[in-house]
Design a binder for these strands. Structure first.
Lengths: 217, 217
DNA sequence: TTGGTTGGAATGAATATTCATTCCAGGTTT
DNA sequence: AAACCTGGAATGAATATTCATTCCAACCAA
């Protein structure tokens, strides 16, 4: 359409980002809905308002398009989670902060969220997880944040002494589940629902003590 | 290969089930790994040791093949969950029974489990969930079982008074998460890990009382 | 033989990718 | 300034590949 007109200023420098962004956005939207194999490149081109060939000026092929987007979205997600994260806060508060971050990101970026889900439920995802586990090259990933948190919590006898994977599953699993339902329009995630879920997450992994909450540094 | 040889006995009666089964099994295996659009019919035929055309003798098209399999696997799953289910047991015990059933089914039928996951994360799945929610035609579904359980538990003040969807998310979500990791070979789900997860599920949704467990009918 | 079943080549539609061409902002020449 | 180049970006028709489905010759049981 009239894309050209209002970008004369940008085009001087590396305006090349514009089309690229359009393509990326369209891909996220479509793949989040129809999945990788369910969205032809032609459809991406149309949704992006771009010629089919243009896509190949910015990305080697469909595969690397998706791979690049995933890396980008993943960074985006992690930085949301770690935004305003203060490692000096009590364990419980930090746990709430990180988990609330998942809710927030999913609600604010439904397409990106579903895109990541699609990705994880594909042949790509499996290999990626494997790599993540076996070589911890990624420094400040979400899982690592939770991992450190859990170790410390266990040392302080605040968090159950059960396998790390179980702790992660009971933190991330329910939230992903709820966000998916929310995106599907099956439920509405208001503040109180989110709070009750976060409390449930915490109750699942915390050590059962009689007095509970109040006595934490 | 030599599939023909050892099936002469069956072919006397309604052997038509045999090829059908081979096709179904192959489809489950492949789709669980590569997804619907990622597995061509030709690949299914090869994996099943069957001509491509044969598939169309048993199923109208690829769509109805998948739809039929889903219905079948779903029934299978539900009957596993409800096997030996005794509605007269205490709430807590019934909850453990149902949740343990999810673990069991996933561990014993990894391909079927991943197949269902693929299905739910596809355009099919979304519509299906909707129907399930809005018209409760399905009588003894897993969700309904949990639903009834939760209502009763809430009435008895055993289970938190939070939205049903949240309760379900905190029961099913972590288990699905762990089973997926287990199938991917990232963790091993031994009995003690499963137990700790089930306890965590229960802790997430139960009302926090001082004495806790022991005082239940 | 006859009726039905099977395998897999054949078909056409859909798809990813390529490439010859067009377009245009910015620079150069007059 | 006006007319004219120029190189890179954009395009979409053309090509190559993959896929679901169809079709039929060979096969098998009765």
């Amino acid at each position: 359409m009239n894309i050209h007109s209002n970008q004369k200023t940008l085009s001087a420098l590396g305006n090349s980002g514009s089309k690229r962004e359009q393509i990326i956005d369209a891909t996220i939207r479509l793949i989040s809905e129809y999945g990788f194999h369910g969205t032809p490149v032609s459809m991406i081109a149309q949704e992006a308002g771009v010629g089919a060939g243009t896509i190949y000026r910015y990305f080697k092929d469909k595969d690397s398009l998706v791979l690049e987007i995933f890396a980008q979205v993943n960074r985006d997600f992690q930085s949301t989670m770690l935004d305003q994260y203060d490692a000096r806060q009590p364990i419980r508060d930090r746990f709430f902060h990180l988990c609330r971050g998942i809710f927030q990101y999913g609600i604010e970026n439904p397409h990106k969220f579903k895109f990541m889900e699609q990705f994880y439920n594909s042949p790509y995802g499996t290999t990626l997880r494997r790599e993540k586990l076996f070589c911890n090259c990624d420094d400040s990933s979400q899982e690592l944040s939770l991992e450190q948190l859990f170790s410390k919590g266990q040392a302080q006898q605040l968090i159950k002494d059960i396998p790390l994977a179980t702790l992660i599953a009971h933190s991330v699993g329910p939230i992903v589940f709820l966000v998916k339902d929310s995106i599907a329009g099956l439920i509405h995630l208001d503040e109180s629902t989110i709070d009750s879920s976060l409390t449930a997450c915490w109750d699942a992994i915390r050590v059962r003590s009689q007095q509970s909450d109040i006595l934490e540094p």
